[in-house]
Design a protein around this nucleic acid. Sequence first.
DNA 1: GCCCAGATGTGCT
DNA 2: GCACATCTGGGCA
Length: 195
Amino acid sequence: MRYTPLGSSFYNMPTLTLAEELLGKLLVKETSSGLTSGWIVETEAYKGPEDRAAHSYQNRRTKRTEVMFGKPGLVYTYSMHTHCLVNVVSGEVDRPEAVLIRAVEPKDGIDLMYERRGVDKKEVNLTNGPGKLTKALGITMEDYRRSLYEPPIYIAEGPKPASISKGPRIGIENSGEAKDYPWRYWVTGNRFVSR
DNA sequence: GCCCAGATGTGCT
DNA sequence: GCACATCTGGGCA
């Protein structure tokens, strides 16, 4: 199973548009154990300097956020507690914006996902959360700063969802007014959406 | 459904 | 050194 990654030009669009356009695309990760992939069904946009919920709020530039200042289409992996989350860097160079991938629907390598997540899980629990999908697909801090338009981690074309919903983002209660921005997008009715 | 502890990297003092 | 985070799973109701 092999797919054609979307080229770097795909990522040259406003962050909110990109967050919406990513829905229905295929997120693919190749490792020595095999290939796993899933349809992206939920995303959240984080808009740099003016977004209190973003790591790059007020252009905070550190070792961790450095990649957000780079080219769009790079991978920003972030570790939190025992988990790892994956973002797509967006915005032009020096515009520290990103799109968080919150959930995918498993497509290829489902056996491998069970192996990584635990065989006692229901299928819906394999990838219906940002920390879950990274584990199921084998995405780790090793992928930090990789580009998404070539293997081993990339995004390929997929069907456009029939209907898209949007609403406030999740897990950012301490972010003042930013917590209400409707920058979370998901495929309407998809059962792999996190909540 | 809600509450809570786990357990670790990161950033600030 | 210390507080806290783009979360998850298990406990209980």
